[in-house]
């Protein structure tokens, strides 16, 4: 059998040290994705450094009124926290829309952000895949790609990032705290994941051995309302066909603050900055939402069988924003 070592350090520095010296090593969180990939032969780490029990299990308010979520917090724990449900409901909604209860009990926040694409070619070692085996090709472009990317893809890769949580975090301007042998650093969540370009095997900007220690949310925007909505084939335990997280603050009928992030359209949660800019200061109307989202989605380059994602994403976003703008007309919050 393929042997690998397993280590369970008790502090972050030891974890980082273990990984830094071992090019074939990987961090292990809840294992809900990595262990599957090891069984499939997609991942073959020679050392697993279990970080699920590092002291990153706190969910705590920050001095500035935000929220700091340890990377080892389980998805189900985070979704259930009152502070999260009350102040950042889209985090709960996104988490609870993903996977199954059993998986959410095991999966960690850090691991959730670093899970790999579910592209069927990536998961099948009998077939080419540039993400898994650089230079081998991307059969998804002509093959089975109904679930795959319409934004930010390249000729080398059309994978999507599967996380629901990351989409909500992108809309909340979350920061990701990291530590490596070079010390700590922080990144906006929207800069964590890479678009494939000609290096699709690199999902993120993380350096080898760099460890996510926490995710930090800024204080909620006052009077803003938010929602996460996900379209999928199956009512539960299914990845998104498209999803949207939106935060909207309307003053005097005008858009005063807006954040829109799409899931399942690209290799990273897609912050719709073009749409946001177009909406700022504009009337909060269905028409304006539609025009803004159209501008965002003008960049879409669908493949043969995933063109539906353009109207689907548009309608999801317009519907969610319209609901948010009309508190008394069936809006969610």
């Amino acid at each position: 059998m393929k042997e690998f070592r397993y280590e369970r350090p008790t502090d972050a520095d030891s974890a980082v040290a273990l990984l830094t010296d071992a090019p074939g090593a990987a961090y292990l969180g809840g294992g809900t994705n990595l262990v599957d990939l090891m069984k499939l032969g997609v991942a073959a780490p020679d050392l697993l450094v279990d970080v699920s029990r590092l002291p990153f299990e706190e969910v705590e308010e920050t001095d500035g009124g935000g929220l700091r979520v340890g990377a080892a917090v389980r998805n189900s724990t985070l979704a259930a926290r009152r502070m999260v449900r009350e102040r950042y409901p889209i985090v709960s909604e996104a988490l609870l829309s993903g996977a199954s209860a059993q998986l959410r009990n095991a999966a960690t926040v850090g691991g959730n952000l670093l899970q790999r694409t579910r592209c069927l070619y990536f998961q099948d070692v009998g077939k080419p895949c540039n993400k898994r085996r650089p230079g081998s090709g991307c059969p998804a472009r002509e093959g089975v790609h109904r679930d795959l990317a319409i934004l930010g893809a390249s000729e080398h890769c059309v994978a999507t990032h599967p996380s629901d949580l990351a989409v909500a975090l992108a809309a909340l301007d979350a920061m990701v705290h990291l530590v490596s042998a070079a010390g700590p650093r922080s990144l906006p969540l929207t800069e964590l994941h890479r678009l494939p370009g000609d290096e699709p095997h690199r999902d993120t900007v993380l350096r080898h051995g760099e460890l996510i220690t926490a995710v930090e949310l800024p204080p909620p925007v006052p009077e803003a309302r938010s929602a996460y909505r996900k379209a999928r084939d199956r009512a539960s335990y299914a990845f998104a066909l498209a999803s949207v997280a939106a935060v909207l603050q309307v003053r005097g009928g005008m858009v005063h603050h807006v954040r829109i992030a799409f899931g399942a359209l690209a290799a990273r949660p897609w912050r719709a900055r073009t749409a946001e800019e177009a909406l700022l200061g504009q009337p909060a109307t269905e028409e304006a939402f539609g025009e803004a989202v159209d501008r965002e989605l003008a960049a879409a380059r669908p493949l043969r069988d995933n063109g539906y994602k353009v109207p689907l994403a548009r309608r999801l976003a317009v519907s969610v924003l319209t609901d948010l703008a009309a508190p008394d007309a069936g809006g969610q919050r």
Binding site: S100, R118, L120, D233, R234, A235, S236, Y237, A238, F239
Partner: peptide, 11 residues
Amino acid sequence: LASYHVPACAD
């Protein structure tokens, strides 16, 4: 069973 969708309880 992640990609071949049989009904889940919620369906």
